[in-house]
Amino acid sequence: MLSIKNLHASVEGTPILKGINLEVKAGEVHAIMGPNGSGKSTLASVLAGREEYEVTEGEVSFKSKDLLDLSPEDRAREGVFLAFQYPVEIPGVSSTNFLRTAVNQVREYRGLEPLDAVKFLSLMKEKMKLVEIDQKLLSRSLNEGFSGGEKKRNEIFQMAMLEPTLSILDETDSGLDIDALRIVSNGVNQLKSDNNATIVVTHYQRLLDYIVPDFVHVLYNGKIVKSGTKELAMELEEKGYDWIKEEADKATV
């Protein structure tokens, strides 16, 4: 589904990603871990098409299309979903209005009829249950005055509404208390199927107790320096990142 080959990217001339290789197949959950500043969020942003990041080398194909060639909106319409680390507050735009525009633009791209108000509302009601989000929250301006947990739940709610094939969760767990974490993870798990895939970017092993990954990759200094199964995450939890850093630094010397 997703194939990343030798991906290099930089911000304002500073290289951040220095040759990422990753294959993600339908039905899989990949966790990307790593110390702060290793390039985890950059990878997520590059995949979603954020303009500040310049891809200097390498390629990314998604469902056999050149992902890097697509605008951010077309990536979303093709089925890529980025749950933001810091969801943006947009005063004056109601969540409902925003989502209806988004869902219908995505449907139009996929050659489907737009949803009328009634169908849209019933879809919304059904998906709201997944993340236990309150209708009142959705009639307010998008993310405005939402608590951290509410913002993250809203991200997963949007994911449920847009039904992506590839979801990238960028530190969705950061700052969540255990109840919010449970609700968010539960939402993600219920959306998982054989036809879609998830990339979980996280700093904390704790999330992986709830969203169990098939593969764990450690990103350090812009490269994936170690890959394994969920046991690797346990090992990281126990020993920290220093041993990985040492190994990686030794290898480059």
């Binding site: 947009i90 925003f98 869902v103």
Partner: peptide, 9 residues
């Protein structure tokens, strides 16, 4: 960018 990332042109 947030809106674009949700499929809005």
């Amino acid at each position: 960018f947030y809106l674009q990332a949700r499929g809005i042109d």
